[in-house]
Design a protein around this nucleic acid. Sequence first.
DNA 1: TTCCAGGAGAGAG
DNA 2: CTCTCTCATGGA
Length: 298
Amino acid sequence: MQIQGVMDFNLKYTLESGQSFRWNRIEDAYYGVVEGRILKLRASEKGQHGITLSVESSASEDAAQLTAFLRHYLDIERDVPRILAAVGTDAYIHRAVQRLWGMRILNQELWETIASFILSQNNNVPRIRGIIRRLSERFGRELTLEGYVDYSFPTAAVLAAAESHELLACGTGYRADYLKGAAQAVVSGELSLPHLKRLAYPEAKRELMHRKGIGEKVADCICLFSLGHLEALPIDVWIKRIFETLYLRRPATPREIREFAQNYFGAGVGYAQQYLFHYVHECPNWADDEHLSLISHE
DNA sequence: TTCCAGGAGAGAG
DNA sequence: CTCTCTCATGGA
């Protein structure tokens, strides 16, 4: 199955920018488990009218429905160039946007996103990926696509009933109780996922932060990478570093950074954040004078 | 060996 | 309210 005419989209940057922990690149194809099936995605060379995405699924599903699903999951529907145009107010963010043109913010399944970012705290991406892979192997369902084997992300019900020592064996560390608590809240209905999806950003964030193990940063990740709230601004050590070094040029609290960034970048601050976050990972000399001089300070 | 990673909770002040 | 300490894990 193919999706043709996809404009302003880059598969690599979208899937490798630290928002999803479930994609693996093998040669020129990406394999990932998304909502209960393996998807294999490949992007063709860019043509005049955008790229073509080739799609294989481990599930037998209707092509039109799969297309509609992927257009939403990959955020292809959204007018991202317009959002980035409104955000790019200085030469630095402009350079990041140019360098990573086509990167999109995913709309991922809510429970998996909640669980994944609970596990992400005080942790690094390769290890987060490993924990999620082991949890899926242990508690998920086996899936295959053309000889590629992977496992569905475990449901809240399964994790709610899991023994703590089994979660620990997957490498969750002290986050095991947070994960299990969130799973139990979802199962009991105390944390209603359908309800969360109906809330605006401030209310959704506040609701999420009532859970132990979900602070402001993790709540913002969930709001941005699952609920589509582009006003969300996850402030991790990297984003803090970027704003202190480049924009504020002084030590700053997360509250100060948030106030500055939401005012400076506006409603699309979540997209700006993602481009800055991935740009500094792609470009080790991001803080050199050459880059610093891109931002004018009057 | 110490430091770090898409942090958050608990307690002290 | 802010500051500090601690939490489990593995790679650098």
